[in-house]
């Protein structure tokens, strides 16, 4: 059996040149994992997994577009989209809150639809377009929803904010903004423990009818 190693490089597509503590931990954990994995089963996977199973340690090829940048890499099937975004692409704007689909901090758009990235295995998003909070602004120009959150003080600690904003932009696009009650109902998948809800609703009301993401 061949022992060819083919692994994606953390952060390679993001243009980060400075080594951060996060990068260091990530790389050292990665190297530890490699060291502990039998060489014969760390191999590339170029097949279509149609009629057979990928072996248990085998990485599976994945192609997806994140914030307009195309990526081709191999991932372990158990990697969630959230972990891929944060740990491989260093897009740490998407937050890990509960990691169980209960808080909404990990909300991103996949093919324009908002989902909880913590419950989505990365491999199931092959060929899709992902938008994270980092992909909303146009250069230095913030998205109208980001502007509105600042204007209306739609956050306090900020941990839930990227998820709130990703949900809010999707909400406007879905058209569920006819009343305050409807906005609250369709924002209920995003928990804010600081209690910025009234200001979040105000921000959304300002943007509704404006530019969706």
């Amino acid at each position: 059996m061949s022992s060819k190693k083919q692994c994606s490089q953390p952060g390679e597509s993001t243009g980060n040149s400075t080594e951060t503590r996060r990068d260091f931990i990530k790389k050292s954990s990665f190297l530890t994992a490699i060291a502990l994995t039998p060489v014969t089963i760390v191999k590339s996977a170029e097949k279509q997994w149609d009629e057979k199973f990928a072996d248990i340690f085998e990485k599976v090829p994945l192609t997806l577009e994140v914030n307009g940048v195309k990526h081709s890499l191999s991932v372990e099937p158990r990697t969630t989209l959230l972990d891929l975004l944060r740990e491989e692409f260093a897009l740490t704007g998407t937050k890990k809150g509960c990691d169980r689909g209960q808080c909404g901090a990990c909300t991103v758009h996949v093919n324009g639809v908002r989902i909880n990235s913590c419950l989505s295995l990365a491999i199931t998003n092959s060929g899709k377009k992902v938008t994270t909070i980092e992909g909303l602004a146009n250069g230095d120009d913030l998205h109208p929803m980001q502007e509105a959150f600042i204007k209306h003080d739609g956050f306090q600690c900020g941990y839930c904010t990227s998820g709130q904003i990703m949900s809010a932009t999707a909400l406007v696009k879905e058209g569920h903004t006819h009343s305050e009650a409807e906005i609250k109902e369709f924002m209920s998948g995003n928990i804010c423990r600081c209690g910025a809800y009234p200001n979040i609703v105000k921000a959304i009301q300002e943007v509704k009818g404006g530019q969706p993401s």
Partner: peptide, 14 residues
């Protein structure tokens, strides 16, 4: 999460 084998069939029979 434990590791598992993964497959992605295109047909119901598969």
């Amino acid at each position: 999460m434990n590791q598992f084998q993964y497959s992605r069939p295109a047909e119901i029979a598969s």
